[in-house]
Design a protein around this nucleic acid. Sequence first.
DNA 1: CACGTCGGTTTGTCCGACAACCCGATCTTA
DNA 2: TAAGATCGGGTTGTCGGACAAACCGACGTG
Lengths: 259, 259
Amino acid sequence: MAQAEADRFERISAPPAYQLVAEAIEREIVSGRIPPDTPIGTEADLAKQFGVNRSTVREGIRCLEQSGLIRREPSRRLVASVPRHAKLATRVSRALILHQVSFRELYEAIDMLERNAIELAVTHRTGDDLDALSDNLARTRAALDDPERMADLDTEFHTLIARASGNRVLQLAREPVSLLIYPATQPIFEQVPEAADRLLAAHEKLFDALSGRNMDAARLWMRRHVADFGKGFRRTGRSLEDPVDRVPLDSVFQTRGEL
Amino acid sequence: MAQAEADRFERISAPPAYQLVAEAIEREIVSGRIPPDTPIGTEADLAKQFGVNRSTVREGIRCLEQSGLIRREPSRRLVASVPRHAKLATRVSRALILHQVSFRELYEAIDMLERNAIELAVTHRTGDDLDALSDNLARTRAALDDPERMADLDTEFHTLIARASGNRVLQLAREPVSLLIYPATQPIFEQVPEAADRLLAAHEKLFDALSGRNMDAARLWMRRHVADFGKGFRRTGRSLEDPVDRVPLDSVFQTRGEL
DNA sequence: CACGTCGGTTTGTCCGACAACCCGATCTTA
DNA sequence: TAAGATCGGGTTGTCGGACAAACCGACGTG
């Protein structure tokens, strides 16, 4: 037990070659020396440059592909890439699930994110944002009896508001939360009769507030809207202390997606 | 350009085998059928089970390793794992860098996150949280003349507050922002003489507010503190509209080495 | 110009191999 | 007997080579 002189030396380690390959390419891309959409060489090419076997290069590339720094064109050529939001969101969501985050934590986060999103949107929203929201409202009015579509449209509405905020950090932070809360919304529309109408009313008020750049109204209605969600959630018989659902998220391997 | 009948068919695709392998294992882990720290078989084992070559299994495993669902023990055996926050934060930070997010976006996010963190912390903080914060304050008082240590201690202080909030979603959302803002803080202490003192004063007030569960004081001082940061930032001569620095983030592999 | 053919490239997958390493079991030796 | 040294099997990291399928680009034909 007399572990004399512990911790004097660092754990000695020789990173495997595929990691070194990945890190080397990673550095070039993150630093900007390889701008997005620049073609990287072929696998054989890279193998020659790094002086390692093609299998080794492939393992390194798989890592970068996975983290979104490299993408395969339809032609399968490798090009540098900017990680897509959707992929990151999926990952963060999965982590939160595995950490068994509670609905309370999620609800608090939503409360924070949506209130800030609407505030920023009041000042930054453009005409295009209003058009998109207006379109969403129209479809919502036609879907009041369809819980599944209502859940979708609600998610879309709030995503559009986040976009209107003009803040991409906020958008990115919101996405995983949105993914996790989604499956809890549909049951609300199924079990709480007035939920759909109240939601539509709130969305319309929020739209008007954004349209008229009325900060007070925006704050007020977002607050009510979020609170409404909380009440609806409880009326489905669930506790805020439950861990979030193990949603069947899209696998990280989907490559299509915007932004 | 008479693109008649576009989009009628889905893009046909056959996912490569290594992806199928990865997705299969991913599903088992995310669904909870393979709990954390459960050993996965050996590579040869998996190759046999899936009926593919070991190389193929290796590529699939690399992907999962990369996304944190699988970890290699010191013994190098594979075990299921819960993605660690630090790794995710690094990734999100990189994405934000590559998207050339502006300091304004970052600042707005910080404002939102810190204000909510302190509010939640007022009600949820424990004695341990106070102890950790108090320890941080002591070290801060001894580091007023050392810009680098001040930057570190400031980051630590706010991380501790986030922890005291008891909300892991908030913590996780905060981390990437914290990583990105960090390199901008040190220059403030170097160029703004009163920055260190003001920061310490604010931290002490925040500590007192938490200690006495005084919500109003907590809100007030966090607001001032964040505003102070904004002012300090501008006094370093930078514009809020600049894109964030291309920080040399730790690689997602926490190893160092040349190639 | 539209269309079909054809050869070179590149990827995805497989096979077999081997050194380095880890672990547990066995053997030495004080 | 117990600490320490040794050994062998199991695994990973890496290598070399191989091949079918898909893709690309050029060419030839109508």
